[in-house]
Design a protein around this nucleic acid. Sequence first.
DNA 1: ACCAAGCGTGAGAATCGTTCTCATGAATCG
DNA 2: CGATTCATGAGAACGATTCTCACGCTTGGT
Lengths: 128, 128
Amino acid sequence: MTTRMTRQRAAVAEALDEQDEFRSAQQLHEVLRARGDSVGLATVYRTLQTFADAHEVDQLRNADGEVLYRRCERVEHHHHLVCRSCRRTIEIDGPTVEAWAAKVGAAHDFTDIDHTIELWGTCKDCRG
Amino acid sequence: MTTRMTRQRAAVAEALDEQDEFRSAQQLHEVLRARGDSVGLATVYRTLQTFADAHEVDQLRNADGEVLYRRCERVEHHHHLVCRSCRRTIEIDGPTVEAWAAKVGAAHDFTDIDHTIELWGTCKDCRG
DNA sequence: ACCAAGCGTGAGAATCGTTCTCATGAATCG
DNA sequence: CGATTCATGAGAACGATTCTCACGCTTGGT
């Protein structure tokens, strides 16, 4: 029931911290392998899921449906502007959209409103 | 190069029109089978993708990553408020968020801004 | 420190949605 | 009425993710 600290979890957390961009579980697994920390792929998946459940990392899906993870600067609720090409990420907050989402939900008598708001674009460097 | 009209495409289009909620390719395949229209699963997938590419149907992913399709009332760009449980859908438009998304993108020098904005909640009937 | 209890790990199998292959079928156009 | 060529379908293949289960290591109590 309790969460234990293991070499693997520490390694995943550390690898995650080194990334500036959103990364998939497989990419992180590769990063770990490259740096010499041997961690099973299944463990990487499990660990990331655990972190996400604990709101320690942010999670989103790219257009292909792959799940990407990232340790964000801010802990509070926020959204992202991600480069489709290099995945460079900018954290943004939108009090405007939060309010809008809540209002729309209430207007139609829906509860437990949750929203998926992500912006994708091409960053300056990837424009060529 | 040209798009041909086939029995299968007509069947998929018709089944789609009968749905009020977002449906997965497999669900639609089942609907077709139930009504007696035999259409291969691969064809259902292909057809839905084709429709989506032509902007004839809307497409989104649920929390599990499954792709869902729906023929919406309005053709113009809009978003959705979907019931997590029954997938009952309400089409919404948000001039506010559109402007916000564009502004945020421009502010960070990102181009070809595309946004994913979907609202999920529990509708009145599913609240129990 | 020592131990017992039980969560965590990993390799590979299993899932599952989706796409691909390729031989056959059927729109379409002249 | 062909000939052309896109469309179809059954099953194989794929790819991301999850599951299995025997073994190992963290942890909390002593």
